[in-house]
């Protein structure tokens, strides 16, 4: 047996060893993708509502927050899904240290109502967060380019 043949026996054994290892990353989940896309739209709708008083939307906020937490729990329950779950944790990092969803709610609560510039910024920032999550999930199925980050619309 030549060195080359030994190398291919090693390759075969390595392939078998790789096959025995766990997955590198969770497989594509239609449920996770649907959670990402529908909640992106729902969060954007809630941000649009922030031109009216925070107090009048307590029920909407509670309902959407519950759905976001359910989506996080789904992600957390999937095997080998650490990266997507970490993204959910960043999105839902709670007050007072929250930087995305709960930071938007904190700003809305603090101001009472948000102006167009504030709404445009929070819409864009939260859209970007969901776009990263959506792109990661899509790439679990097949190699896909991520969209470029949206720009904040100008306000006049």
């Amino acid at each position: 047996m030549t060195h080359r043949h030994v190398a291919y026996v090693v390759a075969l054994l390595a392939a078998l060893a790789l096959a025995a290892c766990g997955d590198v990353i969770a497989g594509y989940s239609l449920q996770a993708y649907t959670n990402d896309t529908t909640l992106k739209a729902d969060v954007a709708s809630l941000v649009e509502e922030s031109s009216s008083p925070y107090a009048s939307h307590a029920g909407d906020i509670s309902a959407l927050t519950l759905r976001l937490r359910e989506a996080y729990e789904f992600s957390n329950g999937e095997a080998d899904n650490r990266l997507s779950t970490k993204e959910w944790e960043l999105l839902l990092k709670p007050a007072p240290d929250g930087t995305l969803y709960f930071a938007f709610l904190a700003a809305w609560n603090r101001h009472g109502v948000l102006n167009t510039a504030q709404i445009n910024t929070w819409t864009t920032l939260l859209d970007r967060a969901f776009d990263y999550m959506i792109c990661l999930e899509a790439n679990k199925q097949s190699s896909t380019s991520c969209p470029k980050p949206e720009t904040i619309p100008a306000t006049h």
Partner: peptide, 8 residues
């Protein structure tokens, strides 16, 4: 995280 996930 997304870049790491795409690589994985």
């Amino acid at each position: 995280l997304t870049a790491a996930g795409i690589a994985a």
